Computed example of a mutant assay.
Amino acid sequence: MTSAESNEGRGPLYRLYINRLRRRLPAESVPHHVAMMIDGNRRWARQLGYSSVADGHRAGAAKMREFLEWCDDVGVRVVSLYLLSLDNLTKRDAQELKDLLEIIAELAESLSRVRDWRVQHVGRAEALPPDLARVLAAAEERTRQNTGLHVNLAVGYGGRGEIVDAVRSIIQQHDERGGTLEELAASLTPEQIGEHLYTGGQPDPDLVIRTSGEQRLSDFLLWQSAHSEFYFVEALGPDLREVDFLRAIRDYTRRNRRFGG
């Protein structure tokens, strides 16, 4: 590690290092689609002595707004944020879940008014409280014509559930056309399943980042990340810094992607 890399402050040297990192990123190698698993919000709140983990989730949401700006600034075109899993809807404490749903609604609303970003909800809207589902739908509709950074908000999301929903959609479509089960079995392809995922029509994530040092996928974009590169950051979600992000992008640009080969 260089002396510049060891300077973790927020002063002039830190900004110089940030600017140098950004300038040295080869534009043609920056990932098109980045998926982010923000983790460690609750740990962060407890370590700092907050009375409620909601403070951690709120800080994590604010960090995600920053993260999206960092992505936009270096030329990333699609970002997927894992905000709430299907499991979270049943396994989180009732008060924590209530707070988290409100924070997600506030984040979706605010992101729908930033730059020229397009917001899309990925997940099961029917599994969410109606108020949150309406906020997500409104954010999506408000930004439908935007052409800037495409932001996927994974809320009420599960990767295995998404694959099941995709297959159900294919079966329903095939049935409506009057096709037989044998014809469907013979014609089914990975590309067809991909088209029916929540992210259908989008490129698969090139890079998946997870904070807090955890190294697992947690049912996030299981199908789409089959050939993704992974980068794990030790920082807890709210502590993620721009330098951490830029180092992740730098690391990605130096990798030799094999796509399963």
Rank of each mutant, 00 (worst) to 15 (best):
L136S: 15
A105R: 08
G156M: 05
A127M: 07
H121F: 04
R144Y: 00
L153H: 10
E126G: 06
H150N: 05
E176R: 08
L181S: 08
E140G: 12
S112M: 13
Q120P: 09
A139V: 08
A139F: 14
V167K: 07
E162W: 04
R144F: 00
E109P: 01
A133M: 05
A108H: 09
E182C: 12
P129Y: 14
W117E: 11
S169L: 10
A138M: 09
I104M: 06
H150W: 09
I104K: 02
A105V: 11
D116K: 11
G123S: 00
I163T: 01
Q173H: 13
R144C: 00
A125L: 13
A137I: 04
D175A: 15
P129N: 14
G159E: 14
V167A: 13
V151A: 11
N146P: 15
D131L: 13
Q120F: 08
R144H: 00
L111V: 06
V164R: 03
H174P: 01
E162C: 00
I171F: 14
G159Y: 13
S112P: 13
V135A: 12
R142P: 06
G148N: 09
E176S: 10
G123D: 00
P130N: 05
G148K: 13
A139C: 04
Q173V: 07
I170Q: 02
N146V: 15
V135Y: 13
G156N: 11
V114K: 00
D165H: 08
G148F: 14
I163W: 01
Q172R: 15
D165Q: 12
A127D: 11
R134I: 02
V164S: 01
E126L: 02
I171E: 04
A133S: 10
E140N: 07
N152P: 06
A166H: 05
V122H: 07
V119W: 06
R177L: 00
D165S: 10
D131T: 15
H150Y: 02
Q172Y: 13
D131M: 12
L128P: 02
L111M: 03
V155L: 01
E176M: 07
P130L: 03
N152L: 13
S169W: 04
R134Y: 02
E140D: 11
A166R: 05
E126D: 15
A108W: 14
E140C: 08
A127V: 03
Y157S: 05
G178D: 07
D131K: 15
I171D: 04
R124V: 02
G178Y: 05
L111C: 10
N152W: 10
D131G: 15
D175P: 07
A125N: 11
H174R: 03
V151L: 09
N152E: 08
A127S: 14
H121K: 02
I163V: 11
R113L: 11
T143K: 04
A166K: 06
E162F: 01
Q173L: 07
L149A: 12
R168M: 06
T147A: 00
R118D: 03
V155I: 01
L107C: 10
R134T: 05
A133P: 07
V135P: 10
R168N: 11
V119D: 04
A133E: 07
Q120L: 13
W117R: 12
I104S: 04
S110R: 13
G148I: 10
R142Y: 00
G158W: 04
A127C: 05
A137S: 14
